[in-house]
Design a protein around this nucleic acid. Structure first.
Length: 918
RNA sequence: GGGCGAUUAGCUCAGUUGGUAGAGCGCCGCAUUCACAUUGCGGAGGUCACUGGUUCGAGACCGGUAUCGCCCACCA
């Protein structure tokens, strides 16, 4: 074995072996356990969030697989309609072409090509993360099966009246030329203006002042509204306004929607370009003037001089014209909520179009009930509030998109505009008895990506076929995802699952936090603060990192800033930490919080942990070469570490069951390093090296070393799959354990016989003894190598027995030269002191000890003890405490007082000794 | 406007049903023939944001304040 842990030598080789052997597929005949991967966007690359999420899912999957479950982690990717189409369009643009040059069919062909390339890259990245997904079941939301599921769901919902087509206002993205769902529109505060316009009354008797943030929409006004109870305008309701520039006569109407307190209390109504105005228009039967084109330029509905102008150009022109007409009252600076498309970032316009909708309320009701009843549980529980809040106020879902890449709406139109829904044209003709002579044209729209994602928990398992996989793995056990897609995805899966499978798609939803950079900023390409998980695994030098972060920027001017920040944060680039260290880091970050700051400093500690484990294994293997089947005698230390291991095992089960991988990582780290390595391995050395220990004792220790290490590897495997596999092979051989791979060995289970109070108490005493000596050594600056004579004062019977029984350990691990037991009435020498209960450990000073330093040290302890004592006295002096606190707490407090007093008197006595000397 | 979350050591974070405030990193000191310097040993470092309350007892429970963050929402 190499002296150092080198992840690059082992990880890919091991993964290939796992995969070739088909070990990721469900094994054995245990109960099923299933997790569906949230399918990553096929044209993206895996980012830190994916790696974090994959770590969690893989840990859960491996854990359950080792516990004998038929574990399925279902892999796959999402076609990500808009995002993918944008990427490919950009590639085309770089070639100087547009998608229209290719035409729909060829363009889609082109996207498929790109999908193959990009998707393969993601699959490779997934492998590098150690993900034990069942590749044999890999799926894609646009593959034949998923597409069949989409068509079936669409047709069924349509026939049930839950999908309908309607002309109404939608969020229109004028850059992408498509409708968006409410969720795809992000509203932000932006600095803007509020323009106050004068609208003259047709009677010639004055005017009304209206305010708007979008002046150009006045061209589509069809009324001015006031509040019905607003006395100022009571007389005007029913009169007409002459709409400036347009010349149209429009009525003054009364509607409760108007807030009389805001502005002038008069609102211009543009039903075709504002969601509120649309509703008012419906209520009052107002005409709707659509004044925009698909590009958000003005159409032929407006006066000629405005036709064809971009909306923002028109805005300036309108304002100028009002100014000229003397109808501009004033301009106010104003913070405006600007709706933008989440992909294009273009300002979205409310726009009147024909779209397909899902009538959502009938689907939402049982989905709400599923969470209320506990059939689905959010972890942390708090997220159910977010879910409910959205579900209670849910709006119909616009599912059609005017794109080319995606599931084409399975609807056909005849020449008269009648719509027919079916599997394909032939199916439509059959269903509706349409002769071949009737020309049919398929709807041009595709479906929202999330429509197919919503079916993921069952479409991947073969639905609508009745497959064995479906019977076995639906519903899944847990969904692991981020809170950012609770609405987009989680809620919709629940609705569709209940609707089409008659059952929830999973029983638990584990919501993890979002990975941010070291400053808490969201990682994004434009900020240049993205970390590639593979760079943390393989390492990357500074120049390459800078180049990577500044390449392909949409906004070139940001590059220098990004370069500077990168050079500051990573002056030496990024070291290669290996996958296991990265995974341990992710696990340790998996707290209940919503934001996770990824600080590269943290991963280094876990690489060291890997190295520690590696070297512990070297030590164990070196010392178990001669293991045989002879008689075995277990020492207190052997029994102690076995008991401690059981404790760690129980912790792991508990923490994994509650999705606290941070606590699980901490527990196993603490045990492996600070109990197994720091103490047990050290305690094993004297036994193996001393002539005094019997062959049976040595066998007991060798046996324990190899047994414990083998078990620790299994305990660690779900979090650190590679190093544990690499080490397990020689360890298992040495331990004479069969099996081809650690990933299919049983996970350690709690052992009711493992508790061993006697051994634990003994070793605890040994540890305290040694810690006491070390403290004297450390604070006196005595070399750790120097063996010290120790005298024991006030040694009780058990102290004497333990000192004798564990003399070997104290000598070697504590570097104690000799132990002498003083009689109680014996005059102790001037010495440095450590206390172990009633027992006083004395290290005679004779040239070793600095008197001043020792006095300072003891003073510090006295001070601490006094403070504790005072606090305890205070409590016990309080009648209320004594009367009301549980008896056990009071007793404990009394015991502490006794303890402190004893300690104090011993310390005082020792200090007097020092004074005498001075 | 409504909802949610955060505030604990220099930094990043734990803190289980209220009962002696913890870890990692960083910092200071000692140590290198020993599985591991990717190490070992010792140490320093906290008014638990503030404020009232409940309680014998509050980092934890309740009310309020401040600061920061997120989500939802139709005030032109």
């Amino acid at each position: 074995m190499d002296k150092s842990y080198r992840p690059e030598d082992i990880e890919q080789r091991i993964y290939a072996r796992w995969e070739e052997n088909g070990w990721f597929a469900p094994q054995g005949d245990g109960a099923p356990y299933c997790i569906m991967i949230p399918p990553p966007n096929v044209t993206g690359t895996l980012h830190m969030g994916h790696a974090f999420q994959d770590t969690i899912m893989d840990a859960l999957t491996r854990y359950h697989r080792m516990r004998g479950h038929r574990a399925l982690w279902q892999p796959g990717m999402d076609h990500a309609g808009i995002a993918t189409q944008m990427v490919v369009e950009r590639l085309l643009n770089a070639e100087g072409k547009t998608k229209h040059d290719l035409g729909r069919e060829q363009f889609i062909e082109r996207v498929w090509q790109w999908k193959e390339e990009s998707g393969g890259q993601i699959a490779q990245q997934t492998r590098r993360l150690g993900a034990s997904v069942d590749w044999s079941r890999d799926r894609f939301t646009m593959d034949e099966g998923c597409s069949a599921a989409v068509r079936k769901v669409f047709i069924d919902l349509y026939e049930e009246g839950l999908i309908y087509r309607g002309k109404r206002l939608v969020n229109w993205d004028p850059v992408l030329h498509t409708a968006l769902s409410d969720l795809e529109v992000l509203t932000d505060d932006e600095a803007g203006h509020l323009w106050h316009f004068r609208y003259p009354l047709a009677s010639g008797d004055g005017l009304l002042v209206v305010a708007t943030t979008r002046p150009e929409t006045m061209l589509g006004d069809s009324a001015v509204a006031v509040h019905p109870d607003d006395e100022r305008y009571e007389a005007l309701v029913g009169q007409d306004i002459v709409l400036p520039i347009v010349g149209r006569h429009i009525p003054v109407i009364a509607d409760e929607y108007v807030d009389p307190e805001f502005g002038t209390g008069c609102v211009k109504i543009t039903p075709a370009h504002d969601f509120n105005d649309y509703e008012i228009g419906e209520r009052h039967g107002l005409p709707m003037y659509n004044i925009l084109t698909d590009d958000a330029a003005l159409n032929d509905e407006v006066p000629e001089r405005y036709r064809g102008l971009d909306r923002f150009v028109a805005r300036e022109k309108i304002v100028a014209e009002f100014q000229e007409l003397g109808l501009l009252e004033r301009i106010e600076n104003y913070t405006v909520k600007i709706p933008r498309g989440d992909r294009s970032h273009a300002v979205v316009e409310p726009y009147l179009t024909d779209q397909w909708y899902v009538k959502i309320e009938p689907l939402a009701k049982p989905a709400i009930e599923a969470v209320e009843s506990g059939r689905i549980r959010f972890v942390p529980e708090n997220w159910s509030k977010t879910y409910f809040e959205w579900m209670y106020n849910i709006q119909d879902w616009c599912i059609s998109r005017q794109l080319w890449w995606g599931h084409r709406v399975p609807a056909w139109y005849d020449g008269d505009g009648n719509v027919y829904v079916g599997e394909d044209e032939a199916d439509v003709r059959k269903r509706h008895g349409l002769a071949d002579s009737v020309a049919l044209v398929q709807d041009n729209d595709v479906l929202d990506t999330w429509f197919s994602s919503a079916l993921w928990p069952f479409s991947t398992l073969g639905w609508p076929e009745k497959t064995d996989a479906l019977a076995e793995f639906y519903p899944g056990n847990v969904l692991v995802t981020g809170f950012d897609i609770i609405f987009f995805w989680v809620a919709r899966m629940i609705m569709m699952g209940i609707k089409f499978m008659g059952d929830v798609p999973f029983h638990e939803v584990y919501i993890h936090g979002l990975i941010r950079d070291q400053d808490g900023q969201k990682m994004s390409k434009s900020k240049g603060n993205v970390l590639d998980p593979l760079d943390l695994i393989d390492g990357i030098d500074l120049e390459a990192l800078v180049a990577k972060r500044t390449a392909g920027m949409m906004q070139d001017h940001l590059a220098p800033k990004i370069e500077e920040a990168t050079r500051k944060h990573f002056p030496d680039g990024i070291d290669a930490y290996g996958c296991d260290a990265l995974r341990m880091t992710f696990a340790s970050l998996a707290t209940t919080g919503r934001d996770i700051r990824f600080d590269v400093g943290r991963i280094e500690g876990y690489k060291n942990f890997c190295n520690k484990l590696w070297n512990a294994a070297r030590y164990v293997l070196m010392n178990t070469e001669s293991i045989d089947d002879g008689k075995i005698e277990l020492s207190a230390a052997d029994r102690w570490i076995r008991a401690r291991f059981d404790r760690a095992t129980r912790d792991m089960h508990r923490h994994i069951a509650t999705y606290r991988l941070d606590l699980a990582a901490q527990a196993i780290y603490e045990f492996t390093w600070h109990e197994f390595c720091d103490w047990y391995l050290e305690l094993s050395k004297p036994v193996l090296q001393s002539e005094a220990s019997s062959p049976a004792q040595q066998r007991g220790t060798r046996r324990t070393l190899i047994d414990m290490l083998e078990a620790i590897l299994r305990l660690l495997h779900p979090l650190m799959p590679f190093i544990t596999e690499e080490l397990w092979e020689p360890v298992a051989r040495r331990a004479d354990i069969g099996g081809d791979t650690i990933m299919l060995r049983p996970y350690p289970e709690p052992d009711d016989n493992a508790a061993d109070d006697e051994a634990v108490a003994d070793i605890e005493w040994v540890r305290q003894f040694i810690l006491g000596i070390r403290q004297i050594r450390g604070e006196m600056d005595i070399s750790p190598g120097k063996a010290l004579p120790v005298k024991l004062l006030h040694a009780g019977e058990s102290d004497r027995a333990r000192a004798q029984r564990h003399a070997l350990l104290l000598q070697h691990v504590g570097r104690v030269e000799s132990i002498e037991i003083l009689a109680d009435d014996e005059q102790p020498p001037v010495a440095a002191t450590a206390l172990l209960g009633d027992l006083r450990l004395l290290v005679p000073m004779k040239g070793l000890i600095d008197v001043t330093a020792e006095r300072e040290r003891l003073d510090k302890q006295v001070e601490k003890t006094r403070a504790e004592l005072a606090r305890a006295h205070g409590k016990l002096g309080n009648e209320n405490f004594v009367n009301n606190a549980p008896a056990a707490v009071v007793t404990q407090e009394r015991e502490r007082v006794v303890e402190f007093e004893k300690t104090l008197s011993q310390l005082t006595e020792q200090l007097q000794k020092l004074d005498e000397l001075a």
